[in-house]
Amino acid sequence: MEKDVTLAQIEFRNVTKTYGALAAVKDLSLSVRRGEFLTILGPSGSGKTTSLMLLAGFQAPNQGEIFIAGKSVAAVPSYRRDQGIVFQSYALFPHLNVRRNLEFPLEMRGIKAAERTMRVDRILARVHLDGLEDRMPSQLSGGQQQRVALARALIADPPILLLDEPLGALDRNLREQMQTEIKSLHKEFGITTVCVTHDQDEALTLSDRIVVMRAGRIEQTDTPEAIYDRPATQFVAKFLGEANILENPGFTIEANAPQPSGTVAMIRPERICIVALNAPKRVDVDQYQSVTGTVDNMIYAGPLRKYHVRVGSTLLVVREHVASGRRALQPGDEARVEWLRSDVRFVAV
C-alpha cells in the first residue's frame, strides 16, 4: 500500500527546553511526514541534539508538546515510544555477540525464539553481516559495528528511526559507503527517520528535507536542492557548503532581479567560471557578469581545483572540475571570472 506522505508522523508544537538560564531549544514547531527522511543540521549548540533527545523521550520539554501519530507523548517514557535509535557510539552491548545484540530488543517485546532467529538471520543478510553473528563487538570493524547498530534499530520494525550523528566515527570512504546503505535501507523499510548531524554532505545525500538550526531556533527548512541553491539567510548559505558573500565587493552586482533591502548577494563557488585573461569571450556574454582579478592561490583536490581570486578588495572562491588538457592557472596569473546573472542569490543578513 502506498504511504500517505502528507500525514504528519511527528509534530513539535511550540517546544522549548531550557537548562537554567540557557534555552537550548526555543519555541520549536516542526512536522515530519510519514515515511520521510528529515535531517536536523546545525553547529554545536544549535539545539539539534536536544531536539532529538526530546523526541526520544530522554529529556522532557519545559513548554510545548510533542506528538507521534497524533498523540501526545508527554507521559510516554522513552522505552515505550517504539522507536529505533542509533547513537554515534553505536552503544552495542560489549558482552554480547552480534546475534545476541540483535535478539535483545525482540526479547524485550516478548517475541518467541523461532521468530527471533528468523528475524535475526534476515536482517543479518540484509546488512551484509551473515557469517559474523558469533563475533563480539570488539572483533568488528567500525563499519561492521555501525551495520549491527542499524540492524538492531530496524529489527523490531519500529515506525520511527532516530539517528544521532550515525556516521561521525567513520572515516570518509566508509562514511560514504554507509550513506548509500542508510539511504537504501530507508527506501526499503519506509521508516519515518529523523537524523541529527553537523555534516553537510551527509545531510544533502540522505535527506528528503533538511532543517537548519541556529541558537535553538529553525533558520530554514526545505529540500536539499532548494536549501543549497536558495538559502534564506547568510548563515544557511555559509553553513551548508561554501559561499561567496558579496557584501561591498568593490564592483556592481548584476542580477536578474533587484536586490531586496536587508539582504546581501551570494554566489556558490562552483557557479563561477575562471579563464585566462586572454581567453575568447563567450557567445552568450550578455547573460553573464564578468570581472577580472589575480589568482591568489590554487588548491588541487583530485577531481577539483579550488581557486582564490583577488578582485579588488574581494577574495572570490572558485571551484572547477579538472578537465583533461585544461591548464591550471597559477598564483599571480591574471584571470577573468564569470557567472550567470541568474545564479546570484540574495540572502538575509
Score class of each variant (00 low, 15 high):
Gly293Ser: 01
Ala24His: 01
Pro158His: 11
Thr180Val: 13
Gly190Asp: 03
Pro137Leu: 07
Asn297Val: 02
Asn278Glu: 14
Leu316Glu: 06
Ser31Thr: 12
Ala60His: 13
Asp164Ala: 02
Leu129Pro: 04
Phe37Tyr: 15
Leu132Glu: 14
Arg327Lys: 12
Arg214Ser: 04
Gly131Arg: 01
Gln200Asp: 04
Phe235Pro: 05
Asp157Arg: 15
Ile210Thr: 03
Val347Gly: 07
Val194Asp: 00
Asn248Ser: 15
Leu167Asn: 12
Leu92Ile: 00
Ala279Tyr: 13
Asp333Thr: 10
Asp121Ser: 09
Trp339Met: 09
Pro258His: 11
His186Asp: 01
Arg172His: 14
Ala323Lys: 14
Arg175Pro: 05
Lys112Met: 11
Gln200Gly: 07
Thr263Gly: 02
Val32Asn: 00
Gly332Val: 09
Gly262Trp: 07
Asn101Cys: 02
Asp222Trp: 08
Ile191Asp: 02
Thr252Ala: 15
Ser29Thr: 15
Ile68Thr: 09
Arg268Gly: 14
Val285Tyr: 10
Thr263Asp: 11
Leu38Lys: 06
Ala23Val: 09
Tyr228Glu: 13
Asp130Tyr: 02
Thr50Val: 14
Ser342Lys: 14
Arg217Val: 11
Arg282Leu: 07
Asn62Lys: 05
Val347Leu: 06
Ala237Gly: 07
Ser290Trp: 09
Leu132Asn: 14
Ser78Lys: 05
Ser141Phe: 11
Arg327Gly: 00
Ala151Phe: 11
Ala276Pro: 04
Asn14Val: 09
Met136Asp: 03
Gln63Ile: 11
Asp222Leu: 07
Gln145Lys: 06
Ile66Tyr: 08
Tyr307Ile: 01
Thr16Cys: 05
Ser261Gly: 12
Val275Asn: 10
Gly190Phe: 07
Lys183Asp: 08
Gly57Asn: 08
Pro331Ser: 01
Val211Thr: 01
Arg135Glu: 09
Asp286His: 05
Pro159Asp: 10
Leu106Ala: 08
Tyr19Thr: 01
Ser29Leu: 09
Gln63Asn: 12
Ala75Tyr: 12
Val5Gln: 12
Tyr300Arg: 06
Asp157Tyr: 14
Gly312Glu: 13
Thr233Leu: 13
Ala125Ile: 03
Leu92Pro: 00
Pro249Lys: 09
Glu247Met: 13
Leu96Ile: 10
